[in-house]
Write a protein that binds this DNA or RNA. Sequence first.
DNA 1: CGGCTTGTCTTCGATTTCGAAGGAAGTTGG
DNA 2: CCAACTTCCTTCGAAATCGAAGACAAGCCG
Lengths: 380, 380
Amino acid sequence: MPGKETLPVRGAQGDLLRLVAAGHAESRAELARLSGLAASSVSLRVEELIGSGLLVEEGAGTSRGGRRPRRLRLSPRAGLLAVADLGAHHARLGLLDLSGTPLVVEERPCDIMDGPEATIDWMAGAFEDMLAAHAPPGVPLRGVGTGVPGPVDPATGRVVAPSRMPGWNNFPVAERLAAHFGLPALVENDANLMAAGEARAWPGCETLMVLKAGSGIGCGVIVNGALHRGRGAAGDISHVRVRSDSSVTCSCGHDDCLEAYASGAALMSVLAEQGIEVRRPADVVALVEDGVPEATALVRNAGRLIGEVLTVLVNFVNPDAIVIGGGLSAAEPLISAIRAAVYERCLPLATRDLEISTTRSGPDAALLGAGSLLLDAVLA
Amino acid sequence: MPGKETLPVRGAQGDLLRLVAAGHAESRAELARLSGLAASSVSLRVEELIGSGLLVEEGAGTSRGGRRPRRLRLSPRAGLLAVADLGAHHARLGLLDLSGTPLVVEERPCDIMDGPEATIDWMAGAFEDMLAAHAPPGVPLRGVGTGVPGPVDPATGRVVAPSRMPGWNNFPVAERLAAHFGLPALVENDANLMAAGEARAWPGCETLMVLKAGSGIGCGVIVNGALHRGRGAAGDISHVRVRSDSSVTCSCGHDDCLEAYASGAALMSVLAEQGIEVRRPADVVALVEDGVPEATALVRNAGRLIGEVLTVLVNFVNPDAIVIGGGLSAAEPLISAIRAAVYERCLPLATRDLEISTTRSGPDAALLGAGSLLLDAVLA
DNA sequence: CGGCTTGTCTTCGATTTCGAAGGAAGTTGG
DNA sequence: CCAACTTCCTTCGAAATCGAAGACAAGCCG
């Protein structure tokens, strides 16, 4: 009976379970090092966790010069997480086991303009479909989480002043989800989720900036290994004023915001003015790959503007890496223009070991991040 | 015999001592809440710490509705810290007890241009003078720390690529100090020390940006209550490109750095060109207070430029407060120009509860910060 | 004043954790 | 191949920690 009841989240067992689930530890020895507990205590608790079916021993790890460790994993039967990443016109949805490994990921069309009530109902229905189709019998759902394309107040789980989500302002999304499933629920900005997901793919990097370049421009920040939320808007770079000859007024009311020049939406509207039909950021990438000069020039300029904004932040934050994801990140000229700007203008101390590259987690980064953060809520 | 021997830094006693020393806890009950230990265990360990003369009970605190707590303090006889803040032409030096309370603070002229060897010898001599004059007999020195006006590699305690400290590059300052006194030693950038010092004066603020506006422009960042060091240059804002009509080349080799327009040094050189004699940032403040229009306009412009740079960082980091210190911070027009720029251009979510004001810890902020950080080294 | 509530601190048996010692299972290097 | 070393994991008595119960000391309030 693998933990149909509540999970052991308190005390030493909970600590050890968290370390394994978060992917920080894979063996009793590692658990001892990271938890600060004595090796003997770790063995005792791990034996109990295996006994209750939450952990499983799975083969041997690689030796570090001595006896090989016996690898520990979270049992796939310990529970499931249902996660989603809401976009403007479609959503990715997934089921993960408690170690964050996806069982199934789907993309379905939806429309957040229908408002929060309808969208949450739709999402709940989609989750139930997926559970019916893919969840092994007897494995309980432990938590639900979703990303939204707007700022979220970390204290309340409410969406706050979202520019692309009319009708959602101050709606208690997390509360509703929690009530519907009777489970811990998580709501977080989509770029923040991407950052949390990437963080697991960049071991050794304590400080990370993860840029989401899609229709909008978002950024998530990992500081000291943890997501930095600030007041819910942390990581915002879209409304930074950029140096420009012309003058464009942004939806926020100010002039010359980065978003008005370098977001996917801005690029698409310029292309449309030139009579080139594009519907999504991926179409822009396709134009660039086809060598359409107008598109390439636009994308390169967007990269330069983004890079100039990043220089300020790189000097200030000194990240270990900048990760670029989102629909536009597949466009090479964007990446190279960002790299050029950052390496040219930043302090040598800040760029000496700085890596700038595209996502390692791919399109599921946000779902993985939702799993990672949701785990903290489930095991707490 | 109040702990002439080594301090108990390991295990529960160490944890409790740290909590009291850092100012987080003042009673057994608070210690129990913050340490996670059972109240009974806390009482046992506290009794031992009092027995060994490290803690003292000092009167009663204020009731929170029930019995009044018996206040705990670090014994003034538990030990001393010697701390310094090196500037270009003068240094502040102080002796603190282990709870960070200053016994004595002095300002002495010195010249870091004499190079690291001479300066460290000078500092050691000054510390020994002060100890002889002010240290109660039998109270041991537990650690030594200093701030320097340049970046410091957090891993090695070496000064790295300092623009205003020729001869210091890569010099192992911390190592030398530690060797000279045979004690834990700390070396840190001066703005970072200011930030660590201010952090203790802003309880409830998890994320803080502390600007040091003096001859140069520095900034220290507190994220989640801890100093964010990055690669040693974190918090740098002096080499951000600003929007400007003219074009000035900075010492870093790039054009139009903030430092070249808004630092105290830059203001002084402009005033000098106009035939107005000034020798230190305080003289600029005096001119502003005397209503000299050239000085006021210059300072206000500097504030605007600094504020525009801060807008980017406020949107990104979402600090709870921006604290402005350093020699120029006494100039009202600087503060109000910074406020105007930040409140005008930042996202409402980021500025809603943002406080922008001058230092609460005053001119000793850096010394207090050195004490705070040094404590971690001493109790570790 | 005397209950009532809230919060602080101690006592003591039950439980958990520690740490030293040792066995198990590898790697490294003659 | 064997000896020396490393790392991983378990065993078992000693020591620290927990937590429930209660004494103690206030503030609150009629």
